[in-house]
Design a protein around this nucleic acid. Structure first.
Lengths: 221, 221
DNA sequence: CAAAACCTTACGGAATTCCGTAAGGCTTCA
DNA sequence: TGAAGCCTTACGGAATTCCGTAAGGTTTTG
């Protein structure tokens, strides 16, 4: 079983519950961090002390507070840990359930498991810990389709960036200029308009404001 | 101390942690509900059995699932319980922290306490339970200003309804017609335009799409 | 290799939004 | 009681978006 585990969550209730699960599994050393920078520091310090963590269980969303942060989300933390410590096992334990987020965390950011903080979360987390310890990938049953189903109308990073810019108040003219300056293709106003129309059809949105609403509800932006 | 308590939360980890806190406080009977309709049913059944609950601790947001629901949020549940059982103590235990939501839950919906699921949530919850048992109102220290500070540029229900309609893809023309048909004043296109401009200034939004984004981020819509 | 399909870009007209000004009514204050 | 301030509504012009069509290039398919 894992020897030394770090729990990263800013909800004390979650920390206590995960602590119990780890104790029941026989994990010897359990530490906690309440925000991402603290977690990153603890991981680095542990390596310097020649007593590294071998598992991290982290949430994705953290409450912003007065601290200056370089890592503001669980996703940032997962990326950072994966790039710095390629062998450190990472379990994401979050209530976020959108397929795009799951796919990103597991396929792009390199998490070893994604456990949905659902009603069955307490039962799935021990299973995820065992699976990851055995070298297996684990994703909550309800979210497995996120990794397998190939959607014919996939949302691309370009789409997300485009709608994010629209959501942040930029006009299509301004976005076109920005894309041209950043060498992001396609960059014409017409193309942006057509891509937006495509997304509106896909989401059944009446206009761009509605599209932004639907994509925020789906947590794509 | 409270005799019989119902915990309403769809996160098993939270349920377990709150369960521990209540046991430590000497609460004899603790039951759980994973969604709002289940909670409402349990409360009604307990009254019929002549063994009612005297406290409910509930989250606000619940994951939608396949069930047909009449109560889809903690706010719905709080309103329902307060209108049906005026003396049943209600504690809201949520990670939602926007002042408007706190004000609504406590002042309009009649919750006896609002505890923020923050890093100090585990320490504040026992204090909230004691305070409510003693007949006092309790709100997490960081959110107390929600009840006291009188904002000069308060967001009204009209504003929220207006922006919700904009967010859902309706044009100002359509909204004007809708307001006229529902006898909601003011209802002219000009007034709607001016009210939207006022909100855009207030939030520092570049356009209506940006306003919707900022108000969703603030969880006002 | 050629045709079909799709993407990018441009264009123009209709529709809507943005922006500022103005008039009348209501509320507040001196 | 009257003036000042604010709100609601209307109006018009400028700017932007919406919508459809078209041309050229690229990719896919037979």
């Amino acid at each position: 079983m894992f020897r030394k585990v770090l729990i990263v969550d800013d909800h004390a209730t979650t920390n206590d519950a995960v602590n119990s699960i780890l104790s029941n599994l026989g994990v010897q050393t359990i530490q906690k961090a309440l925000y991402c920078d603290e977690a990153n520091l603890k991981v680095q310090k542990a390596v310097l002390d020649n007593d590294p963590f071998d598992l991290i269980i982290t949430d994705l969303s953290f409450k912003e507070d007065h601290r200056e942060s370089t890592l503001t989300s669980g996703e940032d933390l997962v990326k950072k840990i994966r790039s710095t410590f390629p062998d450190l096992a990472i379990i994401v334990f979050s209530q976020e359930d959108h397929f795009q987020i799951v796919r990103t965390l597991v396929k792009k950011c390199g998490a070893n498991a994604y456990v949905w903080k659902s009603r069955e979360g307490n039962r799935e987390l021990p299973r995820a810990i065992e699976a990851v310890y055995n070298g297996d990938l684990f994703v909550s049953r309800q979210l497995e389709r996120a990794l397998h189903q190939k959607e014919t109308t996939e949302i691309t990073d370009y789409d997300i960036q485009l709608v994010s810019l629209l959501a942040n108040g930029y006009s299509k003219k301004e976005i076109s200029s920005f894309f041209k300056s950043e060498n992001i293709l396609p960059s014409s106003i017409s193309s942006i308009e057509k891509r937006q129309n495509k997304l509106q059809d896909q989401f059944g949105a009446a206009n761009v404001t509605h599209l932004v609403t639907l994509m925020k509800d789906a947590k794509l932006i």
